[in-house]
Amino acid sequence: MTQGYWVILRTEIFSLFISPATYVSTFYFLALLGVGFRFFIESFPATNWILPPLSSLALGLLFGAPALIPFLTMRTIAEERRLGTLETLMTAPVDAVSIIAGKWSASYFFYLLICCGAYSYPLLVCIIFPSQAESLGFLKPEHWIGGFVFLMSFGASFCAIGIFSSSITRNQMVAGMLSFSLITLYLAIMAFSYGEPTKIDEFRSYDDLFAMVGGSLHRGLDKIQFFALGVLHIPTILHQLIVVFFFLSLAKLQVEKIRH
């Protein structure tokens, strides 16, 4: 089973590497992010920005994810279902779990690669302008780790959403738009509940119920304030893992459905 997972992961990464769409989307995304980063570090002292400037990248990548993740995930299952290659894949001794997990890992891996690309901007600042990097707080390793862990956890759940969207349709455009809307919705709910002063302790209304079982949906974005400073908020990471589990199991159900 693990063997099938690794093979699928390798092949998926390979096909992402040879796909022109990946390069085009990565190029545009990183170029935009780079320009944004340059103007951000020029202007942030005049704004209400209180987090370390490094966390702007994490937020940029997070809010850019709705545009980026669909490019990485929409083809995976939808296109394979349309072409029928998913069935071919199933004729080999692999199970649905390996297929889903492999495809998810591949897109996740690629997302992390792009994150690394984005994080090379502050690295460049550190190399070219060491004194500026110091005053910008780029030399604190905990800020790097915290931001990246934040991205890692949310990237994982976004990729899972993308894989799920891809698994429920045969049309990759529909899959792309679906994952775009789902991720945007996810971000929007987190952003709307941002900073709302409520506390979950007792059940008083449906809001509280939502807050209890919604996981990161309820004020998940707040936690960037922790991660940006290098405080890893473990429940947030676990919440994202639950989201990953949830969407990947749904995707697995979908893939298994075509076998009946």
Binding site: V7, E87, T88, V94
Partner: peptide, 27 residues
């Protein structure tokens, strides 16, 4: 060994790459 109806294959891979992939999938 199974050849499905219509024999769908991934378009963008080379033949040899595809066979390598399948061979590894089959252990």
């Amino acid at each position: 060994g199974f050849l499905p109806e219509n024999n769908p294959l991934p378009e963008e891979l080379r033949v040899i790459e595809y066979l390598h992939f399948r061979a590894m999938l089959k252990g």
